[in-house]
Design a binder for these strands. Structure first.
Lengths: 256, 256
DNA sequence: ATCATGCTCCATAGATCTATAGAATAGTCG
DNA sequence: CGACTATTCTATAGATCTATGGAGCATGAT
């Protein structure tokens, strides 16, 4: 009964359209960036170190596979991930790489994720301690990514400015830093820097995509940053907008 | 502060090793098969319509990316998926394809998934109704896949034998059929066939991999099949071995 | 030992992909 | 409208991937 073998082959060929996107390291990097926030072609080329035309070419490949969508704003074209499934797919790929490829683990270790990551803070712990006002939640990603979506009540302090703006942080509170996800090095580096300065700091186990996929609230916009907003408001936001601290068990959403 | 850009590039290059596996339709097909059960190279070549050497070559690529592992039994080599994360990754890819690629949906519809799939049975409904003895759970995948793992209490009746062995099914009970997953056509075809014979039949929303990933129990071995085992035992097994109908969120560790 | 079986390794022609320069297009601002 | 800017399209050389036949290697049987 092979009447549909042709159709079945078509099916896998369609899947391969998606696979085609993630054969190239730079395309994975682009996709990863786009899971954090939308960006212009120029910004993407800059961030990945690609020539503009090359970046555009890669983006076309991704667009043909429907993994990204575009929005035009004046003279600029902004690309974004074409939905939550895209981020989930990239996340699954990262999980797979971390668990199966020893090399990945090794690279992460060699960059200090290990040292800083030995004791990551769980979601639940973060929620509990933030509610109690015991910690400052720090988003160390670039500012654009923060404003595209962040943990409610988190403060934006991009890693590149952390050293210079260290005095904005209350030395008595422990810092919980987060970034793009398990493969991102921003938070671990931030934690290493903070510890080097004698602060108490740990990484969150999630990046923003994981937090979002867990069904937890995400806040958009510039937020309450500026250094003058007090800690109380910060923690208040995290508590106030939190619907439930337990996993909502949406049929998917790898709880980790 | 680009001191780690080289390392970061390395990281994405590692991810691309995984991407490399899923560029080729046949490799995706192979991976999909291996998420159901281990198989020999010969069996895989046969199932995918590849020449033996070509299949072996593809399997080597997959092995280098650590997505599959092997076991030697006498003169034969059996390949298997290298862990649950692999299946999750393939699953995420399938979800992505279904939601983003209209073509996939179209292919599925053109093959009758639509007709048979308009009303899929949810996990919870299945558990409830099976417990009440109202339905027969049918595994319509090939027998090897059934014995490598199936829903407790399900009966094996491969699609290819369904028509011939139709009389083994009690005409008064509704059938709930399942197969490999949302992209698999076995269950929808089985349901179409059953309905054509005047039976009541629906597809389960899950395939075995989804069921397993949800943390629900999976039974191995030939099971209680044979046509002589009564319905009561079948349903009893599903109930008895079910620890909890809710997602237990065990983060890992389903030994196969 | 010798042979058969089941797979992997090797070599290679043909197909496909990547980076990039330069041209073309779309939208903006005087 | 015409100059200008941000992107996309086009063409192409160089690099990489795929399918496949046949040799080479273990394992098991005679």
């Amino acid at each position: 009964m092979e009447h549909d073998s042709g159709r079945r082959a078509d099916l896998y060929e369609q899947l391969a359209r998606i696979g085609k996107v993630v054969v190239h390291p730079k395309r994975i990097e682009l996709l990863d960036l786009l899971c954090q926030a939308e960006r212009s072609v120029e910004a993407l080329a800059e961030a990945t170190g690609l020539k503009l035309t090359t970046a555009s070419a890669h983006l076309q490949v991704m667009r043909q596979a429907r993994l990204v969508e575009t929005r035009r704003d004046g003279t600029r074209v902004f690309y974004r991930a074409a939905g939550e499934e895209v981020c989930r797919f990239v996340g699954a790929m990262g999980d797979l790489a971390r668990t199966r490829l020893a090399e990945v683990d090794q690279i992460l270790r060699s960059l200090g994720t290990d040292a800083a990551g030995t004791e990551r803070v769980s979601r639940d712990e973060l929620l509990a301690r933030a509610r109690a006002g015991e910690v400052v939640v720090l988003d160390v990603r670039p500012a654009e990514e923060y404003s595209a979506g962040h943990i409610p009540g988190a403060r934006s302090l991009p890693l590149e400015h952390l050293e210079a703006r260290l005095d904005e942080l209350d030395p008595d509170l422990e810092v919980v830093a987060y970034c793009r996800g398990p493969l991102c090095l921003l938070a671990p580096e931030a934690v290493a820097l903070l510890r080097g300065r004698g602060r108490r700091a740990r990484c969150l186990e999630d990046g923003l995509p994981e937090w979002r996929q867990a069904g937890l609230p995400v806040e958009e916009g510039i937020g309450t940053d500026g250094g003058s907003s007090d800690g109380a408001e910060t923690h208040g936001a995290l508590v106030a907008t939190t619907p439930s601290p337990t996993n909502p068990s949406t049929h998917e959403g790898t709880p980790r």
